Simulated assay, not measured.
Amino acid sequence: MKHVALLRGINVGGNRKVPMKALKVTFERLGFRGVQTYIQSGNVIFQAEKVDQAAIEQALRLEFGFPVDVMLRSAAEWAALAPRNPYPAQAAADGTKVHVAFLHQAPTPERLDALAARPSGEDTWVCLGRELYLHTPGGLGQSKLNLAPLKQAATVRNWRTVENIGELLEK
């Protein structure tokens, strides 16, 4: 079974450096097969019958010297992202204006209400389970969205990256 591991907050602004070759080796040491990385933001595609998120995070902490949150998705969960995308026209027009925030768990209604209460300008979002789909017409760098009310780790990928990882999973 294929899986995707998304690492949060690595290789941003020269901080928390994780070389992709070393990341691949770390996943292989954990016994995963067919390990591939995709771009420097920490996307790992691999094969495994069972996956232990805590074991992956512990191995990363030991290997790189700092904690790294990992969001895991199966290939089937990844394949469901596109059909569920509430912004297909915007994603088709510009894959850098639609993003997916990957969460460990689905937010509670109270957390979603707290997020909705915050001003977000022209940016919009839709939460579907453990994914928060974001449309940021001005780009994510200019976005007013702040995911802090969710009170959990999240890692964000633009739609172009989501599609490219999907293609790698199909190979």
Rank of each mutant, 00 (worst) to 15 (best):
E63L: 03
R130M: 08
G42D: 04
L115F: 09
V156A: 08
Q58V: 10
G95I: 01
A75Q: 10
P109N: 04
R29E: 14
R111W: 05
L81Y: 11
W159F: 01
T37S: 15
Q142Y: 10
L7W: 01
E122A: 13
K144C: 05
L128M: 06
I45P: 00
G65T: 12
F46Q: 00
K17W: 04
F64W: 14
Q53K: 03
D69V: 08
L7S: 03
A91E: 02
D69R: 14
I45W: 02
F32T: 00
R8M: 12
V4Q: 00
V68L: 12
M1V: 03
A79Q: 14
Y38T: 09
K151A: 13
C127T: 04
L168Y: 12
E57Y: 10
A101Q: 12
Q90Y: 01
M20T: 05
V100C: 14
A101V: 15
P83W: 14
Y87P: 11
L6F: 15
K21A: 11
A93D: 09
K97Y: 01
L60P: 04
P83A: 13
K151W: 10
R130H: 07
I165F: 01
A48C: 07
R29I: 08
K97F: 03
A75M: 02
N158D: 02
Q53E: 06
H135E: 15
N85H: 09
Q142R: 13
G9N: 11
Y133M: 05
A106L: 06
L115C: 07
P86R: 03
E28S: 11
G121F: 06
A92L: 13
D123V: 12
V126H: 00
A76L: 07
F64H: 11
R33A: 02
Y87R: 08
A89C: 01
L169K: 09
L150K: 05
I165A: 02
K50V: 10
P137S: 14
W78Y: 13
V25L: 15
E163S: 02
T37V: 07
Y38N: 04
E77A: 14
